[in-house]
């Protein structure tokens, strides 16, 4: 006879193994980067411009560049994405066209980032004549993360129970009041999750900024949004493959800074999300 407890144990073992297979590589990557990168981290590394053909000095311009790009992308993508999500989930009628639009948006999230880079080059840099600039780069990154923000925000809005909407409407509130006071506040944690995913992607991608903003080497800080800028992921690519004889610890140090930056931005969003979840009274 088969022992049901044994099959449960076997199933449990495989489930645990699968989890372990995910956790271990991620842990290893983080450990290696910290181990090799930490010796490079110093105040000078964080605050100085790159020197001697990027073989010494710091990465300050790249940090600032990435911060600019990510902020720009979010400022552009979050409002537009949120408004589009509100329209799609609350106002649009459920017909073939809307379903095609929703499907298209979901699929856009899977388009390779280099395609967004080419698109940004064609539209912002060349056609709109923004040039190779922070503006072009931010907009390109913004367009890249829009599908992620729209999809997650839409799911967050749709997960707010229909009964809350009915109650609000039955009290004589208008549709917009219902969205503003009942639906949105309850969807904010989910919307922030989308923003976190978008942030991480915008900060880490190299291809979209390659043609639209990134400078190979720029020893000063950008003065306006029409300037070129250095960015951490591209800088990492440059010192890893394009410049010979760069010390290993500088490369890993750069990776560590990029990782920490993304983690820190995520942390801010997670704290905000936590606060809203705590306020949520159900």
């Amino acid at each position: 006879m088969r022992n049901p407890y044994r099959s449960q144990k076997i199933a449990f073992f495989f489930l645990f193994l699968a989890t372990l297979l995910i956790v271990v590589p991620v842990g290893l990557i983080v450990i290696v980067i910290i181990q090799k990168g930490l010796p490079a981290i110093s105040w000078q590394f964080l605050s100085d411009i790159p020197r001697q053909g990027m073989r010494s000095g710091g990465i300050f311009p790249a940090i600032i560049g990435t911060l600019y790009l990510v902020s720009g992308a979010i400022i552009f993508a979050l409002p537009i994405g949120l408004l589009a999500a509100i329209y799609l989930s609350e106002y649009s009628k459920d017909n073939l066209l809307t379903r095609i639009i929703k499907l298209a948006i979901v699929n856009l999230a899977g388009v390779p980032s280099v395609v967004y880079g080419l698109f940004g080059l064609a539209l912002f840099v060349v056609f709109l004549k923004f040039g190779v600039s922070i503006l072009s780069g931010s907009l390109t990154l913004g367009i890249m993360i829009l599908p992620v923000i729209i999809t997650t925000s839409r799911e967050a809005l749709e997960s707010v129970p229909q009964s809350f909407r009915e109650v609000s409407l039955s009290l004589g509130a208008s549709k917009w009041q219902t969205i503003r006071h009942i639906v949105l506040p309850n969807a904010i944690p989910g919307i922030l999750t989308g923003t976190i995913l978008g942030l991480g992607r915008a900060a880490g991608e190299t291809a979209p900024i390659l043609f639209t903003v990134a400078a190979f080497y720029l020893p000063q800080l950008p003065k306006s949004i029409f300037d070129q800028a250095m960015a951490l992921p591209y800088h990492l690519y440059v010192i890893s493959t394009q410049v010979p004889n760069v010390d290993e610890k500088i490369r890993y140090g750069t990776a560590l800074v990029l990782l920490t930056l993304v983690l820190f931005m995520n942390l801010v969003a997670i704290v905000i999300r936590y606060k809203f979840r705590k306020k949520k009274k159900w």
Binding site: S163, F164, E166, V167, S168, L169, S170, L171, G172, A173, S174, I182, P185, N186, K280, K281, W282
Partner: peptide, 18 residues
């Protein structure tokens, strides 16, 4: 909006707002 202000409703389940 005005109709629903004049004609209120209490639902089957106690649906408190959050």
């Amino acid at each position: 909006q005005f109709l629903r202000k004049r004609v209120g409703m209490v639902f089957a389940l106690p649906l408190s707002l959050p």
